[in-house]
Design a protein around this nucleic acid. Structure first.
Lengths: 243, 243
DNA sequence: GACTTTTAAATGTCTGACAAATGAAATCTC
DNA sequence: GAGATTTCATTTGTCAGACATTTAAAAGTC
């Protein structure tokens, strides 16, 4: 684990990279303690401040955690699914908002991925997940629901669907795709008629999941994708006409 | 944008969060310059060192970039798909290696997601992507190829398949799933017979993509998934018998 | 033995300083 | 005046040293 002191600059980035590589290579295992900041400073021949900047970079990626006190220090962190979820969501959301990704592109990706989960979910979903889907459908039918709350419920419905596959890796990958769409969906105004159509499709999907007929769930998702895209197209068209 | 100086500790994390939230909320737009470190220090009522630690956290997530010199400073960074890819791959790889995710779970997730891409890829793939797939198939047939090189070529083949969907969001999401499997695949020893079988399936898939028959590509991927799982099961069984 | 106090080690923060990069302004040259 | 050169101010990158705070282990006390 070495750094090049003559390279242009940013020793802290080099330190972070060196330690990160050691973790990825398995040279540092989970819960292992890194040398103290003072020791690292000597090892890398830099000041403690520089070491700390490097460590903060790693902390930002949840690769290490630090603890104060006598037996404290920096420890290699077990990257939890939860941490990975939230990182994924942040990254996906920013990626979409910063890169002028069209609604259609994001929508296509999301539904393609969800359809990948549907057959698994139809076979494995727990009663709890099905109940969540039903509960969200019920909520979506409540009058007086704001558009934002409607979108949030939509996300919850789809997350339950995805989690029904009982594959944490799949859930993790999908989290980004589903949640990152929310800001885009929030731009849409849902009329009562729109909501009724979405609700019906959600019900179809939930029914298919309950019956264990994956193909029907896939078909339902495809119908929902078409509906969503049409809705968005209308919104953007009317907005373009106005502006 | 404020922080709580009385909260337990980790002012640098609070600063990072405050700025990150401002970026997500759109209060700071792409390429906008943040105040200088000295100004931020005064704004947050902390030292420059603390501000710097916070900024390094953001830099680790590619949310800002810094530049030295008179007109330098920290700028809100446009999160590129490339940056997002590599972050995704790192996170996914570590997630799998640190959480005792079973081969089957990871494999299932990967192929489920790939099948989601296949129909799109069959319709949209460029000649270039098809050529890449063919080239990797050819490489995989070369004698004397190491197992690691075989796996790397396998990844390249599947990435071309995924990129064929011409949906950058999908490619981004899939990057993690495909690449993170590589370390797991590297644990497998591929006999000549194994390679021949995989090669045949890859050829089936490439043929289907070329013909534009998505369903065949999906079927090919399913067959490949089964083959891969069987292979892995054999390896683990023989290893368990030995150990 | 149980409780309290001390102590040492580690991270968190602050201060002040200098190095290096960099663009803009000022100066010089023709 | 135009172009080249120099100076300069600004900003990040790094360093050294100090003190505060937290924490668990060691030492002391009853």
């Amino acid at each position: 684990m070495k750094i090049d002191p003559n390279s242009p600059a940013d020793l802290s980035a080099q330190i972070a990279t060196a330690i990160r590589d050691a973790i990825i290579a398995g040279e540092l295992i989970v819960d292992e303690r890194l040398p103290s900041e003072a020791e690292l400073a000597e090892q890398f021949q830099v000041s403690r401040a520089t070491v700390r900047e490097g460590l903060k970079r790693l902390a930002a990626q949840s690769l290490i955690r630090t603890q104060r006190g006598a037996t404290g220090g920096a420890f290699v962190n077990r990257l939890s699914f939860e941490d990975a979820y939230s990182q994924q969501i942040t990254t996906s959301t920013l990626l979409l908002s910063m890169n002028a990704v069209s609604f259609d592109t994001a929508c296509e990706a999301r539904y393609a991925l969800e359809r990948a989960c549907a057959p698994l979910s139809a076979h494995r979903r727990s009663a709890d997940q099905l109940a969540t889907m039903r509960a969200e459908i019920f909520r979506q039918g409540q009058p007086g629901l704001t558009d934002e709350a409607f979108c949030a419920s939509d996300v919850a419905f789809h997350r339950a669907l995805v989690d029904g596959a009982h594959n944490p890796v799949l859930s993790y990958q999908l989290a980004g795709a589903v949640e990152a769409m929310q800001p885009l969906m929030n731009m849409i105004t849902f009329t009562a008629r729109d909501r009724a159509r979405i609700l019906a499709l959600h019900t179809d999907i939930a029914d298919a999941i309950e019956a264990g007929t994956g193909e029907d769930a896939v078909a339902g998702l495809s119908a929902l994708e078409e509906e969503t895209r049409k809705l968005a197209a209308d919104v953007f068209a009317s907005r373009a006409a106005k502006g």
